[in-house]
Design a binder for these strands. Structure first.
Lengths: 335, 335
DNA sequence: GACTAGAATTGTAGCGCTACAATTATTTGT
DNA sequence: ACAAATAATTGTAGCGCTACAATTCTAGTC
């Protein structure tokens, strides 16, 4: 108790548990790490003593000695809206199934992402799950040099380490084609800035291609920041209408932005989809509750998360280093 | 490379950096840990070599040797809705200001929470931030025995370790009084089950007291699960109306549930607040975008997070072990 | 009881870093 | 030039656990 800075005021080690249980420290270690190597009676004695004294093995020491970790680290750009909860649920389940724990860190800027990755590398996690960029210039090299398995999801073909993604381009094209098939001709496209915007900007080329092929203009483009919520939907609706009063559709980056635009239409007395069709992306919960219900793109987020962990922990030279997950176009009342 | 299970395929240590930079391993260590002890020229040489080789110090070894950690662990019940993003932002900022990193783990059940806490104890984090219970029976004792600083936020007077919270009872009473002052007499109260429901159930006594004092019935109570989203708001609205067709207000546990109830009112052609007043809780983004805008209770979530880290890292016998943060009643159009 | 094989337990050295102390190098003042 | 003080660098032992090997214990057979 003379060292208040120590990790645990009790500073229990396996030595202490061993003494109290009448066995060697190695037996204590084997009880925790290789329980099958220990006679049930002995193991029960040891574990009871440990529980009684509140002993939890020091993972750092174990990691250092064993040279391997059972912890997966994930970096997320935001938990503000519900974009990643299914992805994280997939990460968690896949990690748990494989005897690993998932820790997450929030990183809203590329610089914060680098810092988070450095922490995870320092912790010598078993693998790192990233979300699409942009990343700071040094990140790719740092991770390559580290040798830690890395998977980048939600991005495109230049993933750091392995890649897990759905075909964003196909989804974008399909959604745009849907709007055109509904008779929409003046379609606004909402871009995103900040907060790992790569996963959004990848959608624009698909929009452009379909608009070009249909002989329609693709220059009705406005930008919201990734960190913005519902209010940005209202704002861009108003801006689109001042740019093009006959606007007849908006393709939004998330269901949150779409909901905000939808609310603003209602405030302005515009009929959806009679006057303006609104499409979202991401199949957030709110989309199903709006009136009219929101058309959206559904990435299989849980599968992305589960696939990412699978690639981290089961990767090898003979395994593919990218995984394509499905998506679905959910056509509802708003288009 | 004969050991693919090693943490890093490169297995760089300070010894390697020292050789390449022409200094001792201790100097490399001092460059990272006590940069002021090293001559700038030497430090520059060492850090350049380290960056070039992609060396990140092994935090486990450092933690073991130093006996202290710069990592704070937080356990969250959910990231599904945006309940905790400001809280986490507060945690992050306060940790960063104090030279610490924040890692988070998701734990949806008390058993998962225990597992998460064990991981964090194994990592010998500098402190653990919990969210209100219910907790498994052994958690309190485990944490007390561990000696790791703990703070529990969003709960009440029986916090594990230190406590950070706002006066939930006062908020509940004030919101109920507001509804009564608006002429509401048949008020439905929505309870929550699962997902750390303690922070919700704490609100009911305040509701009961104010209703009792006003001579009104407090038995219009329905329950949603914490994991439910907007749809549960629609469901409980319908159930309340079948219980009490003259229902004139609902007090919801979150703005998400309230938004769901609001959407259902609109679908049923009920006027808000003319026919039914709807109050939420939590000041989620969506509340401000609805028409009508949603009355809600605003906890100062960021302050709770920041205060929690402050108590973890700056606690001591002479410091208080609980912190009360403010809240605000945001009266908007829905009541 | 003696022997053998397998199960269970224990011993050893080292994982990568660092607190603290010791040594060396540099700077300052006379 | 020399001495003293300060700055910078380096050495040592150990943090708590474990891979691998060695030793001890137990059960079965003759």
């Amino acid at each position: 108790m003379s060292e208040p800075d120590r990790i645990s005021s009790k500073n229990l080690t396996m030595q202490d548990i061993a003494k109290a249980a009448g066995v060697s420290p190695m037996t204590v270690s084997n009880c925790f790490r290789y329980p099958d190597r220990v006679r049930p009676k002995t193991r029960e004695t040891v574990m009871n003593v440990a529980a009684q004294l509140g002993y939890v093995p020091n993972m750092s020491a174990g990691l250092l000695a064993a040279g391997s970790s059972q912890v997966i680290g994930a970096v997320l750009p935001s938990i503000r809206n519900s974009a990643f909860y299914r992805y994280v649920a997939g990460l968690r389940q896949a990690a748990t199934e494989r005897g690993h724990e998932l820790i997450t860190m929030i990183a809203e800027t590329p610089e914060e992402e680098l810092s988070a990755v450095q922490t995870l590398l320092g912790l010598r996690v078993a693998g790192i799950a990233l979300v699409a960029g942009p990343h700071v210039a040094d990140l790719r090299q740092l991770l390559a040099l580290s040798g830690t398995p890395v998977v980048e999801s939600w991005g495109g073909e230049d993933a750091i380490g392995c890649g897990v993604a759905y075909d964003v381009g196909a989804a974008s094209r399909e959604l745009t084609q849907h709007l055109i098939k509904q008779g929409r001709r003046r379609i606004g496209f909402v871009q995103v800035l900040g907060g790992g915007e790569q996963r959004y900007t990848m959608r624009f080329p698909g929009f452009q291609k379909v608009m070009f092929d249909a002989g329609l203009a693709d220059n009705l483009v406005l930008t919201v920041r990734a960190a913005d919520g519902f209010g940005s939907g209202a704002r861009i609706l108003n801006e689109f209408l001042s740019l093009e009063p006959r606007l007849d559709a908006i393709l939004c980056p998330t269901d949150v932005v779409a909901a905000g635009a939808l609310f603003e239409c209602q405030r302005r007395g515009l009929d959806i989809p009679g006057d303006i069709a609104i499409a979202g992306w991401g199949d957030y919960d709110i989309g199903r509750q709006l009136s009219p219900t929101l058309t959206t793109i559904t990435p299989f987020s849980f599968d992305i998360g589960a696939g990412a962990v699978k690639m981290l922990l089961e990767g090898g030279a003979e395994r593919p280093n990218s995984l394509l997950t499905p998506y679905a176009l959910e056509v509802r009342e708003s288009t």
